Simulated assay, not measured.
Amino acid sequence: MNHLHSKTAIVTGASSGIGAATTRALIAQGVRVIAVSRDEEEVETFVASLRKNGAQIEAYTADVTCPEQMNAMALFALQTYASIDILVNNAGLMLFSNWSDLATTDWNNMIDVNIKGYLNAIAAVLPFMLEKKSGQILNMDSVAGHQVGPGAGVYSATKFFVQAMTESMRKELGVNHGLRISTISPGVINTGWADKVTDPAGRKAAHELNKLAIAPSDIADAVIYSLNQPANVTVNDLIISPTRQDW
């Protein structure tokens, strides 16, 4: 049964990788989508390609690290589709480095996007979900939110934050208000993340690791499974990894 048809979803980081695959999968279920990205040209091109096939989708250019832009985005969603039913918190950064490299710019960028960005998006949509006593928030986590490696300490810390935050949200917003709060924890996914690693040694390790990767569409399938449940069912967390990934 399709519990998603005619709902409105906001997807951050929607123009590439897991976000783009998730957006396509939601549209296939009859969901209306606000596709959010800070890259205006990329998101407009992506949305135009989907509209050719009749999708109900709007592009919105915003930086998740800016609370004001996230609040404006939520108002745009309401004005466009008259509801906010789903938030897929997906925009994120995964940057590897050794602690001894003191890659403080990478550390701060991950904290800003992976933690503050998620909080900003939640703060923007939560008042509307609380008012109508329904809604779903899916926070994209990672296997790095379940275990830690030496080259991914800050990234893992941001994803452990997502785990703790989501669990707290479930216990308050789910129990007291009927909202459904979930995480999906991908393993190694080929999203182009390895090319974004600035540290030379970290980039080499990332490209080696990426040889195991599975496709963003595999994660999008898990997103649909998690969201497409009856109102009294919450899928708390799904870990989706390549078969040959050993951690």
Results as ranks from 00 to 15, higher is better:
I57D: 09
G145C: 00
G178W: 06
G178V: 15
A124T: 11
N120M: 04
Y81C: 06
L78N: 13
S97F: 00
T191D: 04
A144G: 10
I84Y: 13
S83A: 11
Q56L: 01
I181C: 09
Q56V: 12
I184N: 07
Y81Q: 12
N120E: 05
A59H: 06
L87A: 07
N176K: 11
F76T: 03
V88G: 07
M129Y: 14
A164C: 04
N120Q: 15
D112F: 01
Q147C: 12
V88W: 00
I57A: 11
L179V: 08
G54Q: 02
W99S: 03
G149Q: 11
G145N: 06
A74R: 06
D112Q: 13
A72C: 07
Q79W: 05
T61H: 02
G117A: 11
I111F: 08
Y60C: 11
K116I: 04
E131A: 08
G92V: 03
M110S: 12
A91F: 02
M70V: 10
K132N: 15
A55I: 05
R180N: 03
W193H: 09
L78C: 12
T166G: 05
L126D: 03
N108D: 14
L179F: 08
M73T: 05
P150Q: 07
W193G: 13
G174L: 06
V113S: 05
S134T: 15
S142I: 04
A91L: 06
V148W: 13
D106Y: 08
G151M: 08
G174Q: 07
T65L: 03
M165K: 02
T104Y: 12
M73P: 10
C66W: 10
N139H: 11
I122S: 09
A77M: 12
M94C: 10
F128Q: 10
I122N: 01
P67D: 14
G149T: 15
V125R: 12
S142Y: 01
S97W: 09
H177W: 14
C66M: 13
S134H: 15
W107C: 00
D101T: 05
G192K: 03
F160D: 03
R180V: 13
Q147A: 15
V125D: 15
L173K: 12
L138F: 05
G117E: 01
Y155P: 02
G178E: 15
G135R: 13
L102N: 04
T80E: 14
L102H: 15
P127Y: 09
H177Q: 06
A152T: 15
S97M: 05
S100R: 09
M110H: 04
G153L: 02
M129T: 11
S142P: 15
L87I: 08
Q69P: 01
G151H: 04
S156G: 08
T80Y: 04
